[in-house]
Design a binder for these strands. Structure first.
Length: 740
DNA sequence: GAGTTTGAAACT
DNA sequence: CAGTTTCAAACTC
């Protein structure tokens, strides 16, 4: 029911959005032309089908931005993005013009001047992507078409979203869309901009709106990250940007291409990329759906920003999943609320990517939405796993929870629908109550969608898997007196804040990867299970860490020093202080080195590998996590336990969450590494997952040592250099925490 | 499907 | 910080 309403709302919004768009005729015109260009591509066709919606969305986006801009940032997740949005114009220009980022400036200049060149576009796109992340919604408007494409991106975003920052999750989605747009249409847009020199400023804004906004957002939000990164990293504003851009671009390129080629189709699971993307998206969606979604979506919807998320959702699915998810949220709080910090998510995010992919397919989105969830969005959790997401399938197996939560939203989506994950699926699938069944019931895919069965917690406590995952409860849930619904967004957010104030990492992925080390180390990742760790460690006394009662086991990771378990028999790895510590130490050390290397490489390489790298990096941009992390960090104080490294892992964990389960059991790390190597898409996902989770976790993680956000930044550089690097970098994130 | 077990989360 | 209680998932029957 709610979903329908939501959909209706969307439509109405869309219409409104259209109106809004009308407000800026220039934009429309500009936008449309680009579309024509795309016509040739399959994607374009797909878009055409979706075009109406897209257009609307795009419009929304603008609105969204506006609204977003004005709307107060979600208290909980106050994401820099929001603020950034306001500054968009200036920021854009800065970014573009920003001397610090030669590439950007150049690229920008090119765009503006040349605008049309695709080659240039990538850079711009990247930049935009970065910005978009924050702004996401903005881009969406322009890129409507892209939205379909965006779907894939969203996934990546999803992770980001997962991160608290993510508030922007929605943004993420938007961003992704934006990115896609950027990638695909962005170039066009640029040209347009250029076309009207006089108008450039305005046009840029318009076209750029998506992008620019994004940039702005980034700057404000994402940008802040960038700044942070840049600051931290120093020299590498470019690198950071590049990373973001790269990730974005990568995603864009591949995903877009893939999506375009197989656009909506996501149907075929064949396309790993698509799947991954879908997963990511899913994750994103999930998140969005969840907390962030509420706020962000609302904003989007309200603002019209829906764009990315909504757009994605709409376009892709229509699929309702996303839409529904979004809608529900929005509807509930028409008030533009902010995104939830949803870190958890993130980690939450993480549901099984594979699942997501599947769902994506189901949805027909091409988008590959990754299942974040598993993808992890929301994050971070299993993000590590989720990161694996691509591998997600693996993850899925590992632990349900970590993954599930994320998955729920995400996973479910995966299963059925993509994004919304559970939300979506549920909504969509409501018809099929099955999903509700427990993860176990659902099995691998089923896991994706988590459904809680809370009776007394009102789904406002961490007891509730959905809540813990940063996802709203969906129909499939059997909860009673549930307040974890978009309608109660305020309550949910407030509760989240409370919990986060108590434990900043509460919503962070529980499982952290050391993938970094793993990756670096190599495939030994097989050992990886061990490398991945539970943030806090378990406290099992009777289960011998051989049952799902054990979070470590559930997460598919070995027990670590952090664990206080008795009679540990964890199949993934018995707690071994020495072992873990060693790995951690290695990771940390390695991270530092890697970071440096990455930076250097990024600097050197950036120019070269731009596309792929950028794409991947973009995924990282998940940096939102970083942002989140930054935001979170304050909280970190809490860490009750001294959990070790896990903090770092957190990021990973977030991703891991999704992936964890599957991976966990298998080998979370390995898959990741492989993925990285194998596909760009994968990389992005991973990155995303990693990024968000890590950052979030790190910052958040109490344990923490990990202050590492900077480190994470460092990682980004690595990403810049190359996917491999990125991978390394990712690992570095985990390590980052340890260092601290 | 109901009941038990388990361990995390929440509370004191 | 430690201990206890509450809670819901996981598990068993």
């Amino acid at each position: 029911m709610g979903e329908e309403c939501v959909n209706k709302e969307r439509d109405s919004e869309i219409v409104k959005g259209g109106c809004v768009v009308m407000d800026t005729p220039d934009r429309k015109h500009q936008l449309t032309p680009p579309v024509s260009k795309f016509e040739d591509s399959p994607v374009f066709n797909y878009l055409n089908s979706l075009s109406p919606i897209n257009s609307v969305k795009s419009v929304h986006i603008t609105q969204t931005f506006n609204s977003l801009t004005f709307s107060s940032p979600p208290s909980v997740f106050t994401s820099p993005h929001v603020s950034s949005l306001r500054d968009n114009r200036v920021l854009r220009r800065h970014q573009f013009s920003d001397p610090s980022n030669p590439e950007f400036s150049s690229s920008l200049g090119d765009k503006e001047e040349k605008g049309g060149k695709a080659t240039e576009v990538p850079h711009n796109i990247e930049k935009q992507n970065c910005n978009q992340r924050s702004v996401a919604g903005k881009s969406s408007a322009v890129l409507l078409h892209e939205t379909s494409v965006a779907v894939e991106l969203p996934q990546t975003l999803s992770y980001e979203c997962v991160s608290p920052d993510c508030i922007g999750t929605s943004h993420c989605g938007l961003e992704t869309s934006g990115l896609q747009e950027m990638a695909g249409s962005s170039t066009e847009l640029v040209p347009y901009v250029q076309i009207g020199p006089g108008k450039e400023s305005v046009e840029k804004e318009v076209h750029l709106e998506g992008p620019s906004r994004i940039h702005e957002h980034k700057e404000s939000a994402g940008c802040d990250w960038e700044n942070l990164f840049s600051d931290e990293v120093d020299s590498d504003n470019n690198a950071s940007q590049l990373e973001c851009g790269r990730d974005m671009t990568v995603v864009m390129d591949q995903d877009i291409l893939a999506s375009h080629n197989k656009p909506v189709a996501g149907d075929t699971g064949d396309n790993v990329d698509d799947e991954i993307g879908s997963n990511l998206q899913r994750g994103m969606r999930r998140r969005c759906l969840v907390f962030e979604m509420v706020g962000s979506r609302r904003k989007r919807l309200d603002d019209g920003s829906n764009c990315s998320s909504s757009v994605l959702l709409q376009s892709h699915e229509n699929t309702a999943s996303g839409d529904k998810c979004v809608v529900p949220l929005n509807p509930a709080s028409d008030a533009p609320k902010r995104r939830l910090p949803g870190i958890g998510l993130h980690l939450n995010t993480l549901a099984a990517t594979s699942m997501d992919h599947k769902t994506g397919k189901h949805e027909a989105f091409p988008p590959g939405g990754q299942p974040i969830s598993v993808s992890g969005s929301a994050a971070y959790f299993n993000l590590s796993n989720s990161q694996l997401i691509p591998n997600s399938a693996l993850v899925v197996t590992s632990s349900d929870r970590d993954i599930c939560p994320l998955e729920d939203g995400i996973l479910t989506a995966e299963n059925a629908v993509p994004e919304s994950g559970c939300m979506v699926n549920e909504v969509l699938d409501h018809s099929s109550p099955k999903k509700k069944k427990r993860r176990s019931d659902s099995g691998g895919e089923a896991e994706a969608c988590k459904r809680c069965n809370c009776k007394k917690s009102k789904c406002l406590k961490l007891y509730c898997e959905c809540f813990a995952a940063g996802v709203y409860c969906v129909e499939p849930c059997s909860c009673q007196e549930c307040f974890n619904k978009p309608i109660y967004e305020d309550t949910v957010l407030a509760t989240r804040k409370q919990i986060e104030s108590r434990n900043p990492l509460a919503f962070a992925p529980k499982v952290i990867r050391n993938s970094d080390a793993m990756i670096e180390v190599g495939e030994e990742s097989s050992k990886t299970p061990a490398s991945a760790r539970h943030k806090r460690g378990c406290n099992c006394k009777k289960s011998g860490c051989l049952k799902k009662y054990c979070e470590c086991y559930q997460g598919g990771v070995g027990c670590s020093i952090n664990c206080r378990c008795e009679g540990c028999k964890n199949a993934f790895g018995i707690k071994d202080d020495s072992t873990l510590t060693e790995t951690e130490v290695e990771l940390e050390e390695g991270e530092a080195e890697q970071e440096k290397r990455a930076v250097n490489r990024s600097l050197q390489i950036t120019t070269v590998q731009n596309d792929a790298e950028l794409k991947t990096s973009f995924a990282l941009p998940a940096t939102p996590l970083q942002i989140c992390g930054s935001s979170i960090q304050p909280f970190s104080s809490k860490s009750k336990k001294p959990p070790r490294s896990s903090l770092l892992s957190i990021g990973g964990s977030s991703s891991g969450i999704y992936g964890t389960p599957r991976f966990g059991k298998l080998n979370p790390l390995q898959p990741l590494a492989k993925i990285h190597n194998d596909r760009k898409d994968e990389m992005p996902e991973i990155l995303q997952s990693n990024a968000s989770p890590n950052s979030g976790v790190k910052s958040g993680s109490p344990n923490s040592k990990r202050v590492s956000p900077p480190q994470s930044i460092g990682l980004s550089p690595g990403q810049r250099s190359s996917r491999k690097l990125i991978l390394q970098s990712i690992p570095s994130f985990p390590s980052l925490t340890p260092k601290h």
